[in-house]
Design a protein around this nucleic acid. Structure first.
Length: 294
DNA sequence: ATCTTCTTTCCTGCTT
DNA sequence: AAAGCAGGAAAGAAGA
């Protein structure tokens, strides 16, 4: 039980390239501490006695993470990099600023911070802003509350590039380098997200997010028909490796990944595309891939 | 403790 | 022949 790792957002001087690759920027991916925080939450979630005004950037991020967690929101639905702010800057943000920077989650963050500023703890906002206020049932899927542009603007499959965001550093510290199958199993699903998406990013979301970031998708997957949601794997094994890396499973292959993909047919997250190798199509239950969500 | 969900792993057979 | 597809079966991991 370690709260230290939670978002040990301080960036250690020696973060290996490998660990960077394993990291991701959101709890969505493996920020183990998140659930710890949730678990340990007992009325007063925020342990800092400091007024928000005096928070460091690190503390701002901690607060962000915990707030998302508390509201059972997927942390991928906000661009953490937009919150590279210290407490003073955070406190000077208006309601509109929050909405602008965090989309549909903005009001929740604004309200939560407002409560915190005036009461020093999480108060009525928890009830005032239930997740249902900003989420629909279908919103259980990450990013679904945002438009394509919004999500594409901030989601960055961390494995695909080496830019280190502050949040990445927090997660990378806690990701052991897997070397054995046993190891991989014991660590990969620890806590990524919560109730509505308990195991963190699903495979189809991982695929979707690669597709939504063509500028950082080095020819792994491409759209065949953007409006119809048809896409094709260009480097099937590379995608599998990335998926494996994300799950701390070094033995992932496209064969196994594709089996998981085929299970999506039944759930209508994917539709079959007959006769075409490596081609899939998003189904009616896949969310967040459309340019303009219906 | 048990159930459920979402994979992961392995497999056989088929198709391209 | 190799790679990919289809889908059954079993099991693991973790949340409810």
């Amino acid at each position: 039980m370690v709260l230290h790792s939670v978002c040990s957002m301080s960036i250690p001087a020696s973060v290996s390239a490998e660990s960077q690759l394993q990291a991701s920027w959101g709890p969505h991916y493996n920020c183990p501490d998140v659930s710890m925080v949730t678990t340990g939450y007992s009325g007063r979630l925020w342990s800092q006695d400091l007024h928000p005004q005096y928070w460091s950037k690190y503390q701002v991020w901690q607060w962000l993470q915990q707030t998302m967690d508390m509201h059972q929101l997927d942390a991928t639905s906000i661009p953490f990099h937009n919150f590279d702010l210290d407490g003073r800057q955070l406190c000077s943000m208006t309601y509109q600023d929050f909405s602008h920077l965090a989309g549909s989650v903005g009001p929740i963050l604004y309200q939560t911070l407002a409560d915190l500023k005036w009461t020093g703890q999480y108060g009525p906002s928890v009830d005032t802003f239930s997740p249902g206020d900003v989420k629909t049932e279908l919103d259980d899927l990450p990013c679904s509350g945002l438009s394509f542009k919004e999500e594409a603007s901030f989601y960055v499959p961390p494995e695909l590039f080496e830019i280190k965001t502050p949040f990445q550093s927090s997660t990378m510290m806690t990701s052991p380098n897997p070397s054995s199958p046993d190891h991989k199993r014991s660590h990969n699903r620890s806590h990524q997200v919560k109730k509505h998406n308990p195991r963190g990013t699903h495979l189809w979301e991982f695929i979707r997010d690669i597709l939504l970031n063509p500028e950082r998708n080095p020819g792994l997957i491409k759209w065949e028909d953007r409006t119809e949601g048809v896409f094709r794997f260009l480097k099937s094994e590379a995608v599998a490796q990335l998926w494996g890396k994300k799950k701390n499973n070094s033995s992932m292959t496209y064969e196994k990944l594709s089996r998981a993909m085929r299970y999506y047919y039944k759930r209508e997250i994917l539709e079959r595309v007959d006769g075409r190798r490596l081609v899939y199509k998003f189904g009616r239950n896949a969310r967040g891939w459309q340019e303009t969500e219906k």
